[in-house]
Design a protein around this nucleic acid. Structure first.
Lengths: 334, 334
DNA sequence: CTGAAAGCGCTAACAA
DNA sequence: TTGTTAGCGCTTTCAG
């Protein structure tokens, strides 16, 4: 059952394909009765305009891409969702690409760039080099959760501000030594969190250092906790452990409590992202406007594509410190 | 900077467009030196074949779609991820469509069907009617987490088996009355869970009933708990509360404990899906092979599209009961 | 208001 | 081995 084409409809209605085209997308005035004939014919033949033909003629895809590392945690899933919602409103399809465990991520992104009108790149999924090449080739790009590159638009959560708020909160809770758990090299977000915390807490005179981890998962958090516990005879636990994200913090928290460590009495613990499990684990964390990130990126990309934009846009969305039991500010009683 | 086309390259290399095409996709033998000339020309002009032209000529999109309600919970995100991974392996792009809060979901799905070679439909995102219409029109479809419709392929988790296992587990834990929390109408999965539980527990002589909820979120769970608590003077709490999913169970659990109810001493509670928070809340639940669902669907769809398939395929993936503290089987001591 | 015709960029017979 | 020539299905001038 080969689908009917614009020519079938034209023949059936006794008009030219141009007229059918006009009717299908009411782009120009068509006399009512002709119009009706065309519509009837289209209905009868179950005609649905081929997007492919249309796209080629218009030289546009009416589709946007989004590249992310993975969708396991709630973070990227929410961003993608926010993005998709707005893209749908703007009548654009959404292509997704997960680079997780893909050795040829750069190539995949290049290919994707060739199937859409523009794309959003989340975090450190592709190298600056590739981003720049694509941009140079005319691909419209918006960066999310990644520092700006040249003239390319970007949308980020304000990690610095919340890092400062968190640092102050921990110090107010009595922390004189704070250890950041996470590897600043894994993502720009993590790097900013570390920098912000170091600065804020450092300014109060607190001692700040860092424990690197393999990845940002619960296992890595538990492993980090184990290491800290093991070396207790030589190095006492810090007053506070600020983790780069919630998964890390949850794994760490679990291991610490297993070992009988009193949280927050002995050690304060905090995460980042405010995932659902954080509520149940009573974990202090930083909430990010994940959906807004995606939605804002979608709008920015649309602006770039439709050309209604002056200079590069770098949006910084506000975040919020969420204080819970894992860092309860203790009263100043000795 | 208008991108160069196959004709530019042909002219530049002094060959015909056919030869360029052959070289670009090494579809036929080309003399090495001609080939080199073409490659040089292509590189020089930064030629990248237009997917649009290619797609139109081949009359295929090399893209598949996936339709889901939303991406908030971990469930659909994982399924999508499993799907994307396999689709990428099969060299197909992935288009996503979230129907959540979209009044024109049916239309959106129809449009999507017109931009890809086939699509996967998760759960009750679109009506049977639309699915059938699309299938009749030749759209390749695979259903996931939804009972088969006609000749259309489907991939499902085995809700029935795990419902039986769960029912037996609750009864073994001493439950004589079990209340299922959830609305069987919200999704086929929920309906199967309810049916399975009713049958399994009913067979042991336990009393089984149902408390409907508005949706599958934590709030709805908490609200259900409140209602159960409020009516305690007339109706005692059941021995076990089997919830349709984890979010529901988590909200309910929280409210019950707030009210001082002993779980599992007084009431056993279970969820479904095994989301991350379930571990921290020590919630008994059923684990589903979410990624496998997506991956299996991707393969099935590919089989349908490439035509290497005989009859309709209906896969049923195994699930697993995960016993935790919220339903600990109590020793038979009085 | 409508139609003829020229593309959009590529693939694939069919010839040479 | 290579080139010529039709399309793929649609949009869009440009005439009429």
């Amino acid at each position: 059952m080969p689908r009917s084409t614009i020519r079938d409809v034209a023949r059936h209605a006794g008009v030219s394909i141009a007229t059918v085209s006009r009717v299908m997308r009411d782009s120009a005035a068509v006399r009512p009765d002709t119009r009706d004939r065309v519509i009837d014919a289209a209905r009868e033949l179950e005609f649905v305009p081929s997007q492919l033909g249309r796209q080629l003629a218009e030289r546009r895809y009416a589709a946007n891409g989004i590249v992310f590392p993975d969708l396991s945690g709630p973070y990227y899933a929410e961003v993608v969702l926010g993005y998709e919602n707005v893209a749908a409103e703007l009548r654009r399809s959404v292509l997704i690409l997960s680079t997780q465990g893909r050795p040829d991520a750069d190539l995949a992104v290049r290919e994707m760039a060739d199937r859409c009108d523009g794309l959003v790149v989340l975090g450190r999924t592709v190298s600056d080099e590739v981003v720049e090449q694509l941009a140079a080739r005319g691909t419209r790009i918006v960066l999310v959760a990644r520092p700006p590159i040249g003239e390319i638009d970007s949308v980020n959560a304000d990690n610095r501000d919340s890092a400062v708020a968190l640092g102050e909160h921990l110090v107010a809770g009595g922390a004189r030594s704070i250890t950041f758990v996470g590897d600043p090299d894994t993502s720009p977000d993590v790097a900013e969190r570390w920098e912000g915390l170091k600065r804020a807490a450092g300014a109060t005179g607190a001692v700040v250092d860092l424990v690197p981890v393999d990845d940002l998962g619960e296992h890595a958090g538990a492993a980090a906790a184990s290491r800290l516990l093991d070396r207790q005879d030589t190095t006492p636990l810090p007053d506070a452990l600020a983790c780069a994200n919630d998964e890390l913090a949850l794994g760490l928290l679990h291991r610490l409590r297993e070992a009988g460590v009193d949280v927050p009495g002995e050690v304060q613990v905090s995460g980042w992202d405010d995932v659902m499990a954080a509520r149940y684990a009573d974990l202090t964390t930083v909430r990010q406007p994940m959906r807004e990130l995606g939605a804002t990126a979608a709008r920015a990309l649309d602006a770039v594509i439709t050309g209604g934009r002056v200079g590069p846009v770098h949006e910084l969305l506000p975040t919020q410190l969420v204080v819970r039991g894992s860092t309860a500010v203790r009263p100043d009683t000795p």
